[in-house]
């Protein structure tokens, strides 16, 4: 069980560019680092995350609350506010580094190329503005004339499955599901290449959730945008995404095609997450979840951050952070269990 043979330090960084065969990723996040400055010291919320999203792909980002999922989303759009600080890394969008854009460039870039759908539609919408005005606002900001914008607003509402008459409604007059659809309509207003969805359905009932997910899938087929889908619900991700990245305590611990991750999860944390969702079919068996709770990121555990909770912990895990190993070209895992045999 013990692993005395590997005492030397981590091997090199993972191959930095992901499969160039497909003509280059749409968004390429490289070694992104974000800290929150607190009185207790910097909280390393995102610590060296690399993730590439190809055009038209749906990439799922899964992890618990506090693992840094939303921080990544906010960092990509550069909408983080002061105690948060981006300390390193690049986010290349069609080759341009978002982290280097100035304010004018950012203003143009946001929403026309990449937009975001937040978790709580009620908070994302302005309660004292009609939905129509909020939709027009986005489009006029980006230089569309009022007539064009108005036409487009009607079209967008059709697209997301709300009666265009509801454009005159205020947010509180819509049901939760409709509000989230309206937010999606706003996100699609300028026909972006990529949509970041930060737990878009967590606050909704299952039936409405299913409806909206289906709507998103249909829209994506029609319009061809990519999605970065953030959620803690792994079973949902397996259903909708092409690839999944698992995040724990600010780091990506495993990346794989959705189906492969579901059928062959490698990292003990991924396994633990899989073991945290009861199923509605099949044999009923005891699920264990994961003992313990996520670490304090001011002083993350030395070595592998998951080692205090890991059922397969070895001596090396508490000393050396595991390097990322590529099991296959598109399946990587950061765990000493897999460093050993290679």
């Amino acid at each position: 069980m013990s692993s005395r043979n590997i005492t030397s330090v981590q091997d090199a960084q993972p191959p930095s560019s992901n499969n160039p065969a497909t003509g280059g990723p749409l968004l390429d996040i490289r070694d992104l680092r974000v800290v929150y400055l607190t009185t207790r010291g910097p909280v390393k919320a995102v610590d060296g995350v690399s993730l590439a999203i190809q055009p038209g792909e749906v990439v799922g980002l899964a992890g618990e609350s506090g693992s840094g999922k939303s921080t990544i989303a906010h960092a990509i759009l550069r909408i983080l506010h002061p105690p948060a600080l981006i300390t390193g890394g690049q986010a290349l969008f069609s080759g341009r580094d978002i982290m280097k854009m100035d304010d004018t460039e950012l203003g143009q870039f946001r929403w026309s190329e990449i937009s975001i759908v937040f978790q709580s539609a009620m908070n994302a919408l302005n309660p004292v503005m009609k939905i129509r005005d909020q939709l027009l606002d986005v489009m006029q900001c980006h230089g569309l004339s009022k007539t064009v914008a108005n036409e487009r607003a009607v079209h967008l509402f059709d697209l997301v499955g709300i009666d265009p008459q509801r454009l005159e409604a205020y947010p509180h007059q819509l049901s939760g599901g409709m509000r989230q659809r309206a937010v999606i309509a706003i996100a699609l207003a300028l026909n972006p290449d990529m949509l970041i969805m930060d737990e878009p359905t967590t606050a909704l009932d299952v039936v409405v959730q299913k409806d909206i997910l289906q709507q998103i899938a249909t829209l994506r087929e029609k319009l061809g945008f990519s999605i970065l889908f953030i959620t803690h619900d792994l079973s949902l991700l397996v259903e909708i995404s092409t690839r999944i990245a698992i995040m724990y305590a600010g780091e990506l611990v495993e990346k794989a095609p959705a189906r492969e991750l579901f059928e062959l999860p490698l990292h003990p944390y991924t396994l633990g997450l899989m073991n945290s969702f009861p199923s509605i079919s099949g044999l009923k068996h005891k699920l264990t979840g994961i003992p313990g709770s996520p670490p304090d990121l001011v002083e993350p555990p030395a070595g592998c951050r998951f080692h205090p909770r890991c059922p397969k912990v070895m001596a090396i895990c508490s000393q050396v952070a595991p390097a990322t190993k590529f099991i296959s070209p598109d399946h990587s895992v950061s765990c000493h269990l897999f460093n050993q045999d290679r």
Binding site: V206, Q214, A217, S235, E239
Partner: peptide, 25 residues
């Protein structure tokens, strides 16, 4: 049945057709 069909099920991938989906409020 509607509730059951809405539970995310990793065994089946999301279909874009409406399935059992009842509409309305």
């Amino acid at each position: 049945q509607l509730l059951l069909s809405a539970v995310p099920n990793p065994h089946a991938s999301l279909r874009t057709d409406k399935g059992i989906g009842a509409r309305g409020e």
